[in-house]
Nucleic acid binder design. Sequence first.
DNA 1: CCTTGACTTAAAGTGCGCTTTAAGTGATAT
DNA 2: ATATCACTTAAAGCGCACTTTAAGTCAAGG
Lengths: 125, 125
Amino acid sequence: MADIEISDMAKLMNLNSSTLRYYESIGLITDIKRNASGKRVYSERDIKWIEMIGRLRETGMNINKMKKYAQLRKMGDSTITERKNIMQEHLNFIENKIEELAKSRDYVAKKVEIYTKMEEKINGK
Amino acid sequence: MADIEISDMAKLMNLNSSTLRYYESIGLITDIKRNASGKRVYSERDIKWIEMIGRLRETGMNINKMKKYAQLRKMGDSTITERKNIMQEHLNFIENKIEELAKSRDYVAKKVEIYTKMEEKINGK
DNA sequence: CCTTGACTTAAAGTGCGCTTTAAGTGATAT
DNA sequence: ATATCACTTAAAGCGCACTTTAAGTCAAGG
């Protein structure tokens, strides 16, 4: 798979080019190559990392925590345990969130049910 | 069940008294009674509505949508169908979110697994 | 050659959802 | 009586995660 430029990367990840530059500016993405005319070129490894950022973001991890993880990642194999712990903690977080959402889903489903019954009563039985 | 004051309400719903005043200021909560000295007194019905706000908020409904729903609620039975539709739509939203989270959970779980294997490789054997 | 369009940077601006501040009122405890 | 404490209001402030703006560079097409 070949390298891609910023606009294709943005399309691929369903985000804005500016967001990619922003992530780089805050150190969440690092070491992006440039082509002869100074434009960003994303490698396969970059793509995977940005996909991971997407996963972590949409599951509610904040940018600072992602940054911390990014730093550990840059430091190499000596940080594997620490990274594992972050991921384990986040896994717990996601599982709690799923449970919470499941409860709320039941709550909202019940609301819909109640409204359906009310509709029936109003629209004459 | 008796009426309660703002600080107890805040504790009950695990939010800030200021947040309750804020919700009122934007019209998300309305018609809160006052006692002789002008302090807010929340009824059983208010408690239920604020609990619902909590549910909707933590499942990702934004304030404007909640406000819209609040207005329909104030208008009485003629808006039941519309309210049912909002809840049905939100139910779908929650279900999608749960599915998405489940995918991300698997992704993160796999990460943890990989790290565990890497740890084993590094720590001898 | 020159226009178009996608890129580059640094900095300022935006929107959401609160949270804090400042100034004041009133009931209760010492 | 006076201090304390929880409440009241309106307005300003904040943190997060972008997003937009302004000014400039560069490569390709007509």
